[in-house]
């Protein structure tokens, strides 16, 4: 149990849960987040969560450069694309 609590993956998991909760709370200001700032913050949080999973759970942080750059390009493209459509 102590090992589980001290594991980096557990800390990342708790961070991911907390970030999910913060997105949900942010969207509840109205029934849906419709303002540009709220949408941008929720998208930043979501893509940050996605990157946390990719780098820490899928070990992309230790992967060869081609994979690290491909994954970061995907995260950035999705973020910019969605921000453009929802702005």
């Amino acid at each position: 149990m102590q090992n589980l609590l001290n594991d980096k993956a557990t800390h990342i998991w708790l961070l991911l849960m907390g970030l999910s909760l913060s997105s949900w709370i942010l969207s509840m200001q109205s029934s849906r987040a419709t303002g540009f700032v709220s949408i941008a913050i929720i998208l930043v949080i979501s893509l940050f969560k996605a990157r946390l999973v990719l780098r820490n759970f899928m070990d992309v942080a230790e992967a060869p450069a081609w994979l690290r750059y491909s994954v970061d390009a995907w995260v950035l493209t999705v973020f910019i694309g969605l921000l453009a459509f929802f702005s």
Partner: peptide
């Protein structure tokens, strides 16, 4: 196999805000 399961999680991380949170 583990990475495939993480992909399932990863995709939902984006589906959730798109469908449910932002509009």
């Amino acid at each position: 196999g583990a990475n495939f399961w993480h992909l399932v999680d990863l995709l939902w991380i984006l589906i959730f805000p798109l469908l449910y949170l932002i509009g």
